[in-house]
């Protein structure tokens, strides 16, 4: 297991060196989106319209934060369960998305897209929402404010802690980890 510090946007070179189990600290700009926002982003792609942010090299964080207290950039902001974004992720990956951050298993289509188009699925610690919020320095709603917690935000992060779950080689940390510790 290696440890990396990476700056967004991510390049093919960045993601191709990562292996499942590696610890990565991400810095730079990322975008937040959940179910409803994903559906809209994919509809835009299918209709040939412009997205609210540049997808090439982008990292999307699956999160619906709590409202910030006065003076805070964001409230508590841990990852949500990622499988709900599985129907939408492959097309975003095909169009340049390089990183996804969430928690929980992805389906085979997402894992295959990660291998084919070079992208990585990162796991953040679910429920560590107050801790993770410390890594988020700025947040601004840039699309779909009517979705409330599910709006698309541009966030600036510093040393955002994640673990590589699905890499560009088809590995899956959840399968490997469990196999290692399972007692028959």
């Amino acid at each position: 297991m290696a440890e990396y510090r990476l700056k967004t946007p991510l390049s093919n070179e960045d993601v191709e060196k990562l292996k499942s189990g590696d610890i990565v600290y991400l810095s730079g700009t990322m975008y937040t989106a959940r179910d409803a926002a994903h559906k809209r982003l994919v509809d835009l792609i299918l209709n040939g319209e412009e997205l609210p942010f540049e997808l090439e090299g982008a990292v999307i964080y699956y999160v619906g934060p709590t409202p910030p207290k006065p003076g805070e950039p964001i409230g508590s902001a841990g990852p949500t369960t990622s499988y709900r974004m599985d129907p939408y992720a492959p097309i975003l990956i095909e169009h340049g998305l390089k990183g996804m951050i969430g928690k929980g298993k992805r389906n085979q289509d997402v894992k295959d897209a990660c291998v084919k188009y070079k992208a990585v699925y990162f796991g953040a610690t679910g429920g560590a929402a107050a801790l993770i919020a410390k890594a988020i320095k700025k947040a601004e709603v840039i699309a779909y404010p009517e979705l409330g917690p599910e709006a698309v935000r541009r966030i600036e992060v510093e040393d955002f802690p994640v673990v590589v779950v699905n890499d560009t080689f088809g590995n899956d940390l959840y399968d490997e980890g469990r196999k290692l510790w399972e007692k028959k």
Partner: peptide, 15 residues
């Protein structure tokens, strides 16, 4: 996380 949440009265989890 629990320590930070307690000190700042910040939600343990966003959900």
């Amino acid at each position: 996380n629990a320590k930070i949440a307690e000190e700042e009265w910040k939600p343990l989890c966003q959900d």
